[in-house]
Amino acid sequence: MLIWAFIVSLIVALSLTPIIIRLAIRWNIVDKPNYRKVHEKPMPRMGGMAILLSFYIGLVIFLPKELGTIWHIITGSLLIAVVGMLDDKFELSAKMKLLAQILAAVIAVLGGLQIDFIQLPTGEFIYFGALSIPLTILWIVGVTNAINLIDGLDGLAAGVSSIALITITGMALSMGNYLVGAMTLILLGSTLGFLFFNFHPAKIFMGDTGSLFLGYMISTLSLMGLFKNVTIFSIVLPLIILGVPIMDTTFAILRRIIQKKPLSAPDKFHLHHCLLHLGYSHRQTVLLIYAISGIFSIAAVMFNKATLWGSASILVLLLLLIEIIVEATGLIGKRYRPILNFIDSHVMKNKSN
């Protein structure tokens, strides 16, 4: 049944996306070019509606009995999708979108989705107590924004999300979590069906409708599917799987703090912008980021099966990979590279002196 859940959601997305394209044009829900965007002509957006509708149709067909147990995920995702649609049409403020993300995260928490404790390799338990709720909300809001921020090139957010969903599906099923495995497969089929029209040259953008919805679903599904053992390593797994968007978002925050700009201020130093500046084509940049995402996902699978020392070695290698990416692309901005070098070495003097 799992393979049929994937196939049906894929076919539904392939069928719905052309309809959404026509509706977006008719309703004038288009993404207009500006100085920080790559496309040069108005593009229909709100393509995330195809992902969302395909996903919900798949849930109703293949998981009707489980809908009551995941009401909090459905409710939160509906809220986040409605806010995304309003933003695609009217361009809501960053504060309003953040408030909606927090509310959607709270709904998930009220439904029982939270991390109460973790188990250390020594066998000891650490209970988060009152911190479990804010930590869970922070994770959901953080991942939602990470997927939203990486949506800057044709097919980028949909492709990176698909790679993450494939990994979460495999791990959830290996842990015996059928519900999460089925949900991620349905979402994967919906996303790949949309990606057929979104890969460069794109016929439609997913808009905030899609990027916020995907971010929310990936954040909640990763919590549902990868925390069965509640060990210290299970917390690291979703961080590794989502390494690319989390890394890109982290350096975006650092840049804005260093430059004393609002955290919501846009710039052109995201990973995809930096790769384009280095001379890679649009399609080459997207495929290269796919490859990096794939490396992180493979590392997550290896991490899940490795011993304590093996896991530590994988983390070190991933940190080195992040350092190479940052140095090669200038994710934190060339002007502020000395600050990064100082943080790395603790002894180097600022090159501007």
Results as ranks from 00 to 15, higher is better:
Ser54Met: 00
Phe55Gly: 04
Tyr56Cys: 08
Tyr56Glu: 00
Ile57Cys: 09
Ile57His: 10
Ile57Phe: 10
Ile57Thr: 11
Ile57Gly: 12
Ile57Gln: 03
Ile57Ala: 11
Gly58Thr: 04
Gly58Glu: 06
Gly58Cys: 04
Leu59Gly: 03
Leu59Met: 15
Leu59Asp: 04
Leu59Ala: 03
Val60Pro: 03
Val60Arg: 02
Val60Lys: 08
Ile61Pro: 08
Ile61Val: 15
Phe62Trp: 04
Phe62Lys: 02
Phe62Glu: 06
Leu63Gly: 09
Leu63Trp: 03
Pro64Lys: 11
Pro64Asn: 11
Pro64Thr: 11
Lys65Glu: 09
Glu66Leu: 07
Glu66His: 02
Glu66Asp: 09
Leu67Gln: 07
Leu67Ile: 02
Gly68Ile: 01
Gly68Trp: 05
Thr69Gly: 14
Ile70Asp: 05
Ile70Arg: 03
Ile70Val: 15
Trp71Arg: 06
His72Asp: 12
His72Ile: 00
His72Ala: 13
His72Val: 01
Ile73Phe: 13
Ile73Asn: 04
Ile73Thr: 10
Ile74Gly: 09
Ile74Asn: 08
Ile74Gln: 09
Thr75Glu: 03
Thr75Asn: 06
Gly76Val: 05
Gly76His: 06
Gly76Thr: 06
Ser77Ala: 13
Ser77Val: 10
Ser77Lys: 04
Leu78Trp: 14
Leu78Gln: 06
Leu78Asn: 15
Leu79Ile: 15
Leu79Lys: 04
Ile80Lys: 07
Ile80Cys: 13
Ile80Phe: 02
Ala81Pro: 07
Ala81Arg: 02
Ala81Gly: 14
Val82Pro: 00
Val83His: 00
Gly84Phe: 08
Met85Gly: 07
Met85His: 05
Leu86Gly: 10
Leu86Gln: 12
Asp87Gly: 10
Asp87His: 01
Asp88Thr: 04
Lys89Gln: 14
Lys89Ala: 11
Lys89Thr: 08
Phe90Gln: 05
Glu91Ala: 15
Glu91Met: 12
Leu92Glu: 01
Leu92Pro: 05
Ser93Gly: 11
Ser93Cys: 03
Ser93Glu: 10
Ala94Glu: 08
Ala94Ser: 15
Lys95Met: 10
Lys95Tyr: 01
Lys95Phe: 12
Met96His: 12
Lys97Cys: 03
Lys97Val: 02
Leu98Val: 05
Leu98Phe: 14
Leu98Asp: 07
Leu99Glu: 08
Leu99Val: 07
Ala100Ile: 00
Gln101Phe: 07
Gln101Gly: 12
Gln101Pro: 01
Ile102Met: 11
Leu103Lys: 07
Leu103Gly: 12
Ala104Lys: 06
Ala104Leu: 08
Ile107Ala: 08
Ile107Glu: 07
Ala108Ile: 02
Val109Cys: 14
Val109Arg: 06
Leu110Lys: 14
Leu110Phe: 02
Leu110His: 09
Leu110Ser: 13
Leu110Gly: 05
